[in-house]
Design a protein around this nucleic acid. Sequence first.
DNA 1: GACTCGTGGTT
DNA 2: TAACCAAGAGT
Length: 299
Amino acid sequence: MPSPAPTSAARTAVLHTTLLEWYAANARDLPWRGECTPWGVFLSEVMSHQTPVARVEPIWRQWLERWPTPTHLADDSPGEGVRAWGRLGYPRRALRLHEAATVMRDDFGGQVPRSEADLLALPGVGPYTAAAVAAFAYGLRTTVVDTNIRRVLARAIEGKALAAPAVTRAEMDLAASLVPDDPATAAVWNVAVMELGALVCTARLPRCGDCPLLDQCAWVAAGQPTYAGPARRSQAWHGTDRQVRGAIVQLLREAPGPVTRRALEAAGEDAPQVDRCIDSLVADGLVEPLARNRFRLPR
DNA sequence: GACTCGTGGTT
DNA sequence: TAACCAAGAGT
């Protein structure tokens, strides 16, 4: 008599047990896990957008020391946030953190909102961050979907090498179907899947030999097929507006006071491009124009 | 959906 | 070495 095929619910239960045990034994000791204010969690999530944890940690510590609550940040100038952002990348995040902190100060009694909907309405907060903060700061049951979780589920459940370039509805539904019912367990589940993706089920060279899901992994069972989706456009860098904008903001970060347009031209080879980038930075609110062709970080 | 937006480590 | 890629969001 062959044993009956395990039900979907039974397989999910095994998945939960396996991964939660793995996480308990292998989770990194990140400073924003465990004892940390919701504000600390919020900062860590925004700083981690497209940014490796190792680069986030020192900036995160400096921000929390300098601005221990949303109100402290809101009462300072946005430009100081951009300056303290250092070279974390995507400095608009610093600007939006300041805006979000202002909303928290003015509309939420200086607290980080609890509900996913209120979080989602904050500037710089999208579906990932809203779900992550609700789960990791407040222990609410949400469905967190980030690039790690998408990759783990694509492989382990769907047997694909990588997830699609953009989040799909099917991915959201799949992720939601796997979240445990109990809120506290759900929060750990979300971070456990992320952690597996970050440490073991990595994009380039997955360490399948160390994976707790090895014998339940659909991708391994399928012979680890390679990525079959559309080619991903590689990000150009040299000579792009991105590079020039970054150099302009860096010049302003390093300067104690206003900087002339002439000095900012050092940010690129092509003067018209630098001028165009200055304009776009001003439009974005990252740079404040002053009289006589001088510029500074926003006050 | 396709594009844009920084930065630096890894391969 | 150039390409890849890292806890996304906004337009």
